[in-house]
Nucleic acid binder design. Structure first.
Lengths: 364, 364
DNA sequence: GGTCCGTGCTAAATCGGCTTAGCACCACGA
DNA sequence: TCGTGGTGCTAAGCCGATTTAGCACGGACC
């Protein structure tokens, strides 16, 4: 058993033809170029008998394409989100015959730039720039020359890269609508509000969820019964905010928590106060962390479609790559000065957050 | 601004030398091969002025090495584990100048084999085979010819690949020891036990944690006060098992939960029964999920060192790769028949699970 | 004057596939 | 007999680096 890989030359030799012929046959251009069926069969037989697989590195050198994508993330370890988003990306890539490099920058621009270089050195066909919490950022110069897609990230300036993000405004609207449709008119907010600017810094999710909620309330002629800005959206803050809420309003009837971890704290505080969910208080939340299912009763939560986000980003990216390869892509800067920077702002794809209804909401 | 990458030939032309010379200088063999310092300076200046970066694809073709590793996982989305383990792997790879392909098989052998092929096609220098929960499995034939490391996985048969796994037996011992040292003699188990074979199928963690616990109890002349095998280690099962436990023993004093999700259920059941932690009952657990910190009081939990596991696997793999490249590696099958399958079982590296002490354990 | 040697650099092959240009052969018509 | 054109296949260059083999030059020595 040979240690060496089987090369095209081996196949050609076995089939008794030149490697040119073997290449043509195996790339499906045999008939087009009038290679006889007898020879085509010989080549294909030899190829499968030897277990030939083309060396993608070689193709990469010749054609400049490697069927490989790079995913640059700020951090990989933030909760479930990361895993699911990356899972979606990996699956989509695999389905389309691509492999995925994953890199993380820890938020350090120097690492980011080194990472992008390292990926370019390996001739990736495109790059996904992602963040583990939705945010706005500038797209590095180096990426304007490569097919790029932003994932869970909005561009700070003009760029040709499209973005894929969760539709948080719609989710905010839906959350408010859910409680209002259940007959609630007095709605408390835990995590942000009551004013439209009362949000933790740099959280797109905070701004947009709040905007959606306020929009619906306003349409009903309402304002939040109370709002409690939390600097961090974790259980202790949820507990403290709810505790404070209960001090001001002894009997709240409906609470929107800005994420499930806050809701966890809210549950603890409500339980300690002897209030039952949902009989006394309805609670709705966002993110749909696994935890949402573990609480009793489970929290009705709007699920960030992580996997779908990752998948969409890869599909978009590969579509751009193939379009570019076909010459119809946006890479074809209209004849003339190739330097005429013409950064059309890329599309923004917003994916819905479906409601995972559990038992935490009851009619007023 | 040119669209094309800067190549070695560009550097050579700018410096007025041959590309051979440029290559020698930049690879640090200039002095060794008596290139004058003047020329060396010219080359280096040209290189940095042009922003030259070697094309790794080309190097891959020529040398067969790509400074790239592949990580093949059964699934990426299982909880926090995946993220942290992959994070550790990615960081270690980056620190050592490697990039990482990530692929997931969903447990399908066909996908697994396709994935390994796809990585080999891209000339990866080595492969990490990993599972998101510790388990035992056979190593695919195809991997015996590539530097391979098993991560969170034990080999079912003989193989030359080393394995990196958490030291669950030691953690089991430590958990039992923790309670005994606090004065407890009556210890209940939630998740597995009381007999050494009462574990969910295919869980290495279950078998080993239990073995460690029983070993220490036995040394003290004890057996578990009770044991409750759960088919799935999730909160509802933890709740049910604890409920059952309370039916049999009204006032348990110490419980070992086999993971934090079970502990979550145990907390709920104990609270419902009006028992306080740790005043009435001490609880200790494993995994150190983020949740362990959110419960009140936090659960003292033995942390699986995910990040460290991932990091170690990469470091081991790269060490093997460089050893092999240097000719001192195990790849050098002793002269003679290269086929003499000589599968020395690789080393098993067991990493400790440090205790994250919180407030859930009190003296008896 | 010719040979030998050390110095300092380069030509050319190589890795494995794709791709352009073109060759050898045969049949047919003038 | 000689083109002419179609058929079926191949030689050779290329991608961008590494690496082997060796060239040109000048000085020392016999």
């Amino acid at each position: 058993m040979s240690r060496r890989r089987v090369t095209l030359a081996d196949v050609a030799r076995t089939a008794g033809v030149s490697s040119t012929t073997a290449s043509l046959v195996l790339s499906g251009r045999g008939s087009e170029l009038r290679i006889s069926t007898a020879v085509q069969d010989r080549v294909r037989t030899a190829s499968s008998e030897l277990g030939y697989r083309p060396n993608i590195v070689s193709i990469g050198l010749r054609k400049g394409t490697t069927r490989t994508l790079g995913l640059v993330s700020d951090t990989v370890a933030t909760g479930q989100m990361a895993g699911d988003m990356i899972k979606g990306a990996i699956e989509a890539a695999r389905d389309l015959g691509f492999m995925l490099f994953i890199g993380e920058t820890e938020g350090d621009p120097a690492i980011e730039s080194a990472l992008i270089d390292a990926m370019q050195d390996r001739q990736v066909d495109g790059i996904i720039l992602t963040s583990m919490f939705t945010r706005t950022r500038a797209v590095p110069e180096a990426l304007e020359r490569v097919p790029t897609v932003l994932l869970n990230t909005l561009p700070a300036g003009p760029t040709r890269a499209p973005a894929v993000v969760p539709d948080e405004v719609a989710a905010g609207r839906a959350a408010a609508r859910l409680l209002i449709d259940a007959g609630h008119r007095e709605i408390h907010l835990v995590g942000a509000g009551p004013g439209p600017h009362d949000v933790p810094p740099d959280t797109v999710a905070g701004v947009e969820r709040l905007a959606g909620i306020l929009e619906v309330l306003e349409a009903e002629g309402l304002t939040p019964a109370s709002g409690h800005l939390c600097d961090d959206w974790a259980p202790p803050q949820g507990w403290a905010a709810t505790h404070e809420l209960l001090r001001q309003h002894a009997r709240p009837r409906a609470i929107v928590c800005f994420n499930d971890r806050l809701a966890f704290g809210t549950y603890q505080a409500l339980q300690e106060a002897g209030l039952r969910i949902p009989q006394d208080v309805s609670v709705v939340s966002f993110d749909n962390y696994p935890m949402a299912d573990w609480l009793r009763p489970g929290v009705s939560s709007f699920a960030i479609p992580h996997e779908e986000l990752g998948r969409r980003a890869v599909e978009l990216l590969i579509a751009r790559i193939t379009a570019r390869a076909a010459g119809t892509g946006d890479a074809e800067v209209p004849a003339g000065d190739a330097d005429r920077a013409e950064p059309v702002t890329g599309d923004v794809h917003r994916l819905p957050l479906p409601l995972r209804a559990r038992g935490s909401v009851a009619p007023a």
